[in-house]
Simulated assay, not measured.
Amino acid sequence: MSAPANLTDCYTEELSDLWSANDQMEKVVRDLAEKAGDQKLADRLSRSADGIQKHTETIRKLLEECGEDEKEHCKGMEGLVKEARKHALDADIEDDDVRDVVIIAQYQRMCHYGICGFGTAKAFAEALGKSDHVAKLDKITESIYDADENMSDLAERSANLEAR
């Protein structure tokens, strides 16, 4: 994509980047779910991946409404995915409880990146007067916050304790 010329361009570029980020995150979250030792963690990650997939469909629809249909490769999420693979999937961690703690940490890093991106997109949509887009982006952001908080709760109540 070329350099943005206006706020509409900034908005569509942000959505295009989020589309790519979500595609990348969904794949690695499914892999993390398969590697998780704790069934509750695996289930939460699987549900999260399904939610990410739904968010991606929303992004695609918002982009279509803006006359765009391409995603822009997200290098930020690419780096986070590489880190998740390195530390949680490819690392030679023998203790499942320790791996689960690492999985949670990597998952939350990706969530926080998503919160930032969706918050930015929402701010752009607000400035552009796209109230229907704002509502959808706000719902996605709330969903990511909830997933992050649920993962923190799981870590605090069980995973971190088991990894001691």
Results as ranks from 00 to 15, higher is better:
residue 36 A to Y: 05
residue 13 E to S: 10
residue 22 N to H: 10
residue 48 S to E: 03
residue 34 E to F: 04
residue 53 Q to W: 11
residue 54 K to T: 09
residue 25 M to S: 06
residue 42 A to P: 00
residue 52 I to G: 00
residue 53 Q to H: 14
residue 54 K to V: 04
residue 13 E to Q: 15
residue 53 Q to S: 15
residue 46 S to L: 11
residue 31 D to E: 15
residue 23 D to E: 12
residue 12 T to F: 01
residue 14 E to C: 09
residue 44 R to I: 04
residue 22 N to M: 10
residue 57 E to T: 13
residue 39 Q to E: 15
residue 21 A to Y: 03
residue 25 M to N: 08
residue 16 S to L: 12
residue 16 S to M: 07
residue 26 E to L: 02
residue 26 E to K: 02
residue 52 I to V: 12
residue 57 E to V: 08
residue 40 K to E: 08
residue 33 A to G: 12
residue 29 V to S: 07
residue 13 E to F: 03
residue 51 G to C: 00
residue 19 W to D: 14
residue 30 R to F: 14
residue 26 E to P: 00
residue 43 D to M: 01
residue 17 D to A: 10
residue 36 A to I: 04
residue 28 V to C: 05
residue 52 I to E: 03
residue 36 A to V: 04
residue 23 D to Y: 12
residue 36 A to Q: 13
residue 52 I to R: 01
residue 41 L to G: 08
residue 34 E to R: 09
residue 14 E to T: 14
residue 14 E to Y: 09
residue 32 L to G: 10
residue 14 E to H: 05
residue 41 L to E: 04
residue 33 A to V: 05
residue 37 G to P: 06
residue 35 K to H: 12
residue 47 R to Y: 00
residue 25 M to I: 10
residue 55 H to V: 10
residue 36 A to F: 10
residue 13 E to R: 11
residue 54 K to C: 00
residue 14 E to K: 09
residue 15 L to S: 04
residue 23 D to S: 09
residue 44 R to N: 08
residue 48 S to N: 14
residue 30 R to I: 07
residue 45 L to R: 01
residue 44 R to K: 13
residue 57 E to P: 00
residue 11 Y to N: 06
residue 35 K to F: 06
residue 51 G to W: 02
residue 10 C to G: 09
residue 9 D to F: 12
residue 10 C to F: 15
residue 24 Q to T: 13
residue 57 E to S: 11
residue 31 D to N: 13
residue 11 Y to S: 08
residue 15 L to W: 03
residue 44 R to L: 09
residue 51 G to T: 10
residue 44 R to H: 12
residue 20 S to Y: 09
residue 50 D to P: 01
